[in-house]
Amino acid sequence: MEAKEIKSTVSNLEKSSDDVTILKLLNILNDGVKPSEKLLRETKVGVAVNKYRTSSNNEISSLVKKMIRSWRDTVQAEKSKKKTVSPVNSPSKEPPKENKFHSGPRNPKIDGVSTDVYDDSTRNASITALYTALAIERGDEGKHILKVATEIEKEVFRDEYSKVNDSYRNKLRTFVMNLRNKKNPELRDRLLTRQIAAEKFVKMSPNEMAPEALKKEIEKLHKQNLFDAQGATEKRAVTDRFTCGKCKHKKVSYYQMQTRSADEPLTTFCTCENCGNRWKFS
């Protein structure tokens, strides 16, 4: 695909709202884009596609992760090849970038990055811990990860009135633990792709930082508890007008409640008296 065609497809992608169209356009990009650093910079297709990384549709999120990983590896290989054939006039202060994509752990020492930003050893140690947590399963440049880690530490330090105290240490420990969670790659990604600014991140609650899967589970439990609470307080009637979709029995208890605006129909909450299956409709 030419850059103009990619830009057109990206434009259509950003205007789409249904999963079927989004998936179709993502597959077109996946099949047609031959990634290069220049092409990705010119079209910004990587930025547009990455927005769907945390989609609630598993097929979309899985495809996006596969695309981003493939494009990143291809561009990295392109950079490495150029670096290999070009003359080396002086030793590089940063190790070859291909080393940053290994499956093992990353930290400032391995990446050749110095975290001696301040005269305070505690603050520097905090930046090191943040860097190591942010770098888990990531291929970003060390300088970029260091910048984000430094910004986060700076915001925490500022919140504690420019003091290194117990509150400062506890906050940093909490943020590092959340970032180190291997089941929460979305949080690291949102920080490193600038979807979340450091100043916003340090104000987030544990629930806001939780992995998407856990958030959905919490929401599901909340809805179930709400359903149970509503069922306990409403007077139920038993009827044979409804059929259970699970066991096909017709002995169903139900109650109705206004859950939306007054001009909308009532919501009917049903429970099968035979198997306990629950459902609702308006």
Rank of each mutant, 00 (worst) to 15 (best):
R69V: 04
S90P: 00
K66E: 13
M67V: 10
D31V: 14
N57L: 04
V88H: 09
K109N: 13
V88D: 03
S61N: 13
P108E: 07
K100D: 08
P87N: 05
N89E: 12
L39I: 14
N58Q: 13
V45W: 01
I110M: 04
L25A: 13
I110P: 00
V49R: 03
K79T: 10
T54D: 11
L29P: 05
E78L: 06
V64M: 02
K81D: 07
E98N: 11
K66M: 08
G46T: 07
M67P: 01
N99I: 12
E37L: 11
T84V: 11
K81T: 10
E37T: 11
N30C: 03
L63C: 04
P105G: 01
V113I: 15
S80M: 07
N57C: 02
L26N: 15
P91Q: 08
E94S: 13
D111A: 11
L39A: 06
N107Q: 09
S36G: 11
E78K: 06
K100H: 10
N27C: 02
N58R: 14
D73K: 15
S103R: 13
L29N: 14
F101H: 12
V117I: 15
P35W: 03
D73I: 09
K79A: 06
T74L: 04
N107Y: 01
R106G: 05
K51E: 13
T84A: 10
L23G: 05
T54G: 04
P35F: 05
L26C: 10
A77F: 05
Q76I: 12
L23I: 03
V47L: 09
D31M: 04
K97T: 07
L39H: 01
N99W: 12
D116H: 11
G112R: 04
P91M: 08
V113H: 02
K44D: 09
S55W: 08
V88E: 08
S86L: 14
L39T: 09
K79S: 04
D116Y: 01
A77V: 05
D31T: 15
Q76V: 09
K83L: 12
V33W: 00
K79Y: 09
L40A: 13
N30Q: 14
A77L: 08
H102F: 01
P35Y: 04
N30K: 15
S36F: 07
V33D: 00
V47H: 07
G46D: 09
D73W: 02
I28Y: 01
E94F: 14
S86F: 11
S56T: 14
S92K: 12
V75P: 00
P87F: 11
G32F: 00
T74D: 04
K79I: 10
L26T: 15
F101E: 09
I68K: 02
K24P: 01
K109A: 12
N89Y: 15
A48P: 02
R106E: 02
G46S: 09
N89H: 14
I110W: 02
F101R: 14
S36N: 08
R69Y: 06
T115E: 04
S62M: 14
V75Y: 03
T43Y: 01
E78A: 07
I68Y: 02
S80K: 08
K44C: 09
K51G: 04
S92A: 14
P87H: 06
I68Q: 07
L63Q: 15
S90C: 05
K83V: 09
K34F: 05
V45P: 01
V64E: 06
S62D: 14
M67Y: 00
K79M: 08
I68L: 12
T43W: 00
